[in-house]
């Protein structure tokens, strides 16, 4: 393929990765939770879109409108159920990793039990079509998914910049104690943030349902990719997640084209190790708590 083609495919992929990672980095920023189950929820979202399409005939873009609110509520419920108990724990960060690890195992097992390990993907008519623009082609599915990601990310950005709750979320990310001091109910903000993070996971799942194949255990590879790119961008930084996603997606597209598709994920992990070695806090991040 020519360079321009690879670049375009990489950029489209980066848009989707950015959305996939946004919820993860938001949760880390607000409450220092590394949600290892994030990609498992993305897979759940993908199954949601799959069954909405197969059983109800709903286009993924319609299903998006149902899945996001459902995931928002699910996220808030989950936060209330799991996190208040460990809030005061001296090893909170590590506890959250282990707990969400357990959660990921539960989700993976349930999905595999009910839906088997079969590879699936949603097949709307545009999934196999492409726009031809002179020397390059732009797959419609990827283009739509990427544009939707950009719209959702801009919505998130506007929400964080312009609403009272958005200000409270950013305040909590920047300084938890200060947020408490000015009267932010940080537990409520954490709950809402978890809901938002989960809604973003649901949205990402809906979009990847027709651009990737998925199966229950797929989330391990995805979570590792997402973690790699948010470590590169700086954990807790939304800007970092977007930059990390785009940079690494483009890089992996070139690796995939020049070396082979099976090696593409290696790009992310190599970038992770280099980041940890050279600049552990990432491009836009603050020093990660010890």
């Amino acid at each position: 393929m020519n360079e321009l083609q690879v670049l375009i495919l990489g950029l489209l992929l980066g848009g989707v990765y950015a959305l996939m990672a946004s919820g993860l980095t938001l949760l880390f920023g607000v409450m220092r939770v590394v949600n290892l189950a994030h990609a498992a929820f993305i897979v759940v979202g993908a199954y949601g879109a799959y069954f909405a399409f197969e059983l109800l005939g709903l286009d993924p873009f319609v299903a998006l409108g149902l899945i996001m609110p459902a995931f928002f509520l699910l996220g808030m419920g989950l936060y209330r159920l799991l996190f208040p108990r460990i809030e005061g724990s001296p090893r909170f960060g590590e506890m959250t990793v282990l707990m969400t690890f357990g959660l990921a195992l539960i989700i993976e097992g349930l999905l595999a039990f009910y839906f088997t390990g079969i590879f699936r993907s949603v097949d709307p008519p545009y999934a196999t079509q492409a726009f031809i623009l002179g020397p390059v082609f732009v797959p419609r599915a990827q283009l739509y998914a990427s544009l939707t990601s950009v719209v959702l990310l801009m919505g998130l950005w506007a929400f964080l910049r312009m609403t009272r709750t958005g200000y409270a979320i950013r305040a909590t990310m920047q300084n938890r104690v200060a947020a408490q001091v000015v009267g932010v109910n940080v537990r409520r903000i954490s709950t809402v943030s978890f809901g938002i993070g989960m809604a973003l996971a649901g949205a990402a799942g809906t979009l990847v349902s027709f651009i990737f194949t998925f199966f229950p255990a797929r989330h391990w590879q995805w979570i590792a990719i997402l973690l790699a790119l948010i470590v590169l961008g700086g954990m807790g930084s939304l800007k970092g997640a977007v930059v990390g996603a785009v940079v690494l997606a483009v890089a992996s597209s070139f690796v995939s084209d020049r070396i082979g598709p099976t090696w593409a994920p290696m790009t992310f992990f190599a970038a992770l190790f280099v980041t940890l070695m050279v600049r552990p806090r990432g491009l836009f991040g603050k020093e990660i708590d010890r």
Partner: peptide, 24 residues
Amino acid sequence: LVTFRAHGPAFIISTIALLLMVTI
């Protein structure tokens, strides 16, 4: 030597990445 520059969550992440790299 490489990963113990990271602490807490970042270290855990690097171990998952190691596993996936070796798998690939």
